[in-house]
Amino acid sequence: MVDEVPPDVIELSSSQRDVLLDLVLTWATIDGALSMLLADVRSMGWADAADEIRKLRGSHKLAQVIKALKNHESGAEAARKLRKIKRRYERFSTLRDHVAHSRCIGCSKEDPSYIVFLTFERVGEDMLAMYRVPVEEMSEAISWGTDFVRLLHRLTR
């Protein structure tokens, strides 16, 4: 049955819900900052660039920013810094994807520091994926994301 929750999963606390919301909001801020920076490195006005850039995945935006910056003498150092950051960005983006694109069914009864997600992704012969994501890792992603936004803003206009 679709609405059944495994017996080893319990309801989220309000603080756990806050972490989920903060993660999504942080990634929305990153996405906007990446879009603005990509428009800048392409020498486009933000409104004009919005139609083209808005639908790109964040990792593609970041790759395009790095590519554009490394071709400018004044941006080579920023490109190197962003290239080092990219792997961490992608790791934390996976956490955000669980939150935004999976069904949160609660937290682990055995260890409430893990939030449990069901994802429409095949595992094995006839099962769907279930992920247990540490709240601490989400908090780390929020903190890292906030710092990343500051860096992106410094690089933008």
Rank of each mutant, 00 (worst) to 15 (best):
D31W: 03
L25T: 14
V123I: 15
K67L: 15
A100L: 00
V149Q: 05
D147G: 10
R88W: 06
L25D: 11
W46Y: 14
A129S: 09
G106R: 01
D51Y: 10
E73V: 15
G32I: 06
T156V: 02
R132I: 10
H72F: 10
G75A: 11
K61S: 03
I115K: 05
M1G: 13
K67W: 07
R87G: 03
A28S: 15
E90W: 04
V19C: 06
A50L: 08
I66L: 09
S14Q: 07
A63D: 14
D31I: 00
S93T: 13
N71M: 10
V123F: 15
K86S: 09
E110L: 05
A63K: 07
V9I: 13
L37T: 03
I115M: 13
L34V: 03
L95P: 03
A50D: 01
R83E: 02
I30W: 06
P7W: 03
V24D: 13
H101A: 02
L155D: 03
L34M: 10
A78C: 13
R150I: 08
H72T: 14
V133K: 04
S113P: 10
A79I: 06
A76T: 11
R157G: 06
V65W: 00
K67D: 09
D18E: 09
G45W: 00
V116E: 02
E4V: 11
V41E: 09
V116K: 01
D8R: 02
R157P: 12
L152G: 09
A47L: 08
R42N: 12
L95K: 01
A79D: 03
V65F: 00
M130Q: 12
R154A: 08
V135G: 13
T119V: 11
D48F: 08
D147Q: 04
V5M: 06
D22S: 07
D31R: 01
T119A: 05
F92W: 04
L151Q: 11
G106I: 06
I10D: 04
V2W: 15
L38S: 13
R157C: 03
R91F: 15
A50M: 02
I30K: 01
R157T: 02
L34G: 04
T26Q: 07
L95W: 07
L128W: 11
V116H: 00
K61H: 04
E77A: 11
R154S: 08
A63Y: 09
W46M: 12
T146Y: 14
Y131P: 00
G75C: 12
R80H: 14
D51S: 14
G75W: 14
I85L: 14
P6E: 12
D111T: 08
M1R: 10
S35Y: 07
F92Q: 05
F92L: 09
L37E: 10
Q16V: 15
D3R: 01
V9Y: 04
Q16K: 08
L151V: 15
A141Q: 13
D31E: 10
L155C: 09
R91G: 12
R80P: 06
L56M: 09
G58N: 14
K109P: 06
D147H: 01
R103V: 06
T119M: 15
M138W: 05
T29D: 04
L21T: 09
L21A: 08
M44D: 00
E77R: 09
T146Q: 07
I30F: 01
A129K: 13
K55N: 15
M130T: 05
